Amino acid sequence: NGCFWPYRLHEHYGVELYRHKLMDIEKEVRLYRGLPWVEVKVRLRSRFPHIRLRWCFDLGFKGRYVASTAFGVVERRPEPREHPMEDWMDYSDGERGLALFTRGIPGHQVEEGRVYLTLLRSVDLLSYGDKGPIVPVPDALELDRDYEFEFAFMLHRGDWREAKVWTYALSYTSPPIAMQFDERRARGELPGDEYSFLSLDDTAILTCLKRSEDGRHVVARLYDVTGRGGEVELKVFRQPREVLASNITEEREDPGSTRLKLRPFQIATLKLAF
């Protein structure tokens, strides 16, 4: 159920909104065979100032609400207040639920039985009253500009853990990138139809894979996403000759292993040498 008109504007102005053509909106909805989510793309140009444009999911049932954050998942109570999310949120009653994935649209609001995703705000002041300093921002009215927003939603059974919502969210927000190469310049043969450079149990998320600051190791950083902890294994394309347990600043170097036992939402950093 998509609600596009700014809150109550149609009640105040009625057909005047259409007569003056204050907003151009184009919706594109895509379904793919084999994918459990529905993708939505919204293109719009607004000529109406001081509005908040949102997409509304009217679910009609009471539920619990969680949202992804940096290195974790936070549970919030449904209330008439907007919150940010990292790249996904979920609303479910334990038997059924709605998961929402976004590409760069963090603002959302959850009330009892309804989920709102904020697409666009039009303001001319950064703050006012007792909220902070009055700073004019005329460019933030966002008038006569072309915008394109992308998000996806998925209906599921059970709660967010049972549905493993984060695995689908990351598949949508971080799609694979196809690379083309010149076969004449290639060396060797590809190792079969499938080959994994790195894999990880789906109860953890890999957030970083890079060269260490000293240039001697490959750094892999991961965390437990379930909030329950447990054992995970990091598998790489070949066995590393050295594994060190480190920290975010890469200062600590203790003997480590690619088999880890993580605490709830624990962040783990490994240094690998090949």
Rank of each mutant, 00 (worst) to 15 (best):
L170H: 14
R52I: 13
R252K: 14
P84E: 03
R54T: 15
C3D: 15
L125E: 08
R8Q: 15
F237A: 14
S199A: 12
V236F: 00
A268K: 10
H12M: 11
F57E: 07
Y65L: 04
N247Q: 08
N247R: 07
D224Y: 11
S212Y: 04
R30Y: 09
E75V: 01
H156F: 04
W55C: 11
G230E: 08
G107T: 12
K271P: 07
G256R: 01
E250G: 03
Y195E: 13
I205Q: 06
P84T: 09
P106F: 03
F61W: 13
R8M: 08
L222Y: 11
K271E: 02
R161D: 01
V110C: 14
F153N: 00
V110G: 03
K210R: 15
V29C: 06
R76F: 09
Y116P: 00
L125W: 09
G132V: 12
G60P: 02
H10C: 06
H83K: 09
D193Q: 11
D87K: 06
A163G: 06
R96D: 00
P240N: 01
W37Q: 13
F197W: 13
V135H: 11
V74H: 03
V218W: 05
R185Q: 12
R211T: 15
A70H: 09
L126W: 10
S122H: 02
V29S: 08
G63R: 07
R8G: 04
F197G: 13
L35S: 10
P106C: 04
R64C: 00
L125S: 06
F71E: 10
P106S: 03
H108A: 02
T118V: 12
D24P: 06
A220N: 07
G129T: 10
F149D: 02
A140I: 01
R252E: 15
P191W: 05
T207G: 00
E142M: 12
T118M: 05
G63L: 08
Y128N: 12
A245T: 15
R19V: 15
T102N: 07
L59Y: 03
T102Q: 06
L190I: 13
W166Q: 07
P106N: 01
G63S: 10
P175I: 03
I105L: 15
L209K: 05
C3T: 15
H108Q: 07
D90Y: 03
Y32I: 01
K210D: 14
V219Y: 01
P84L: 04
E250F: 01
V232F: 05
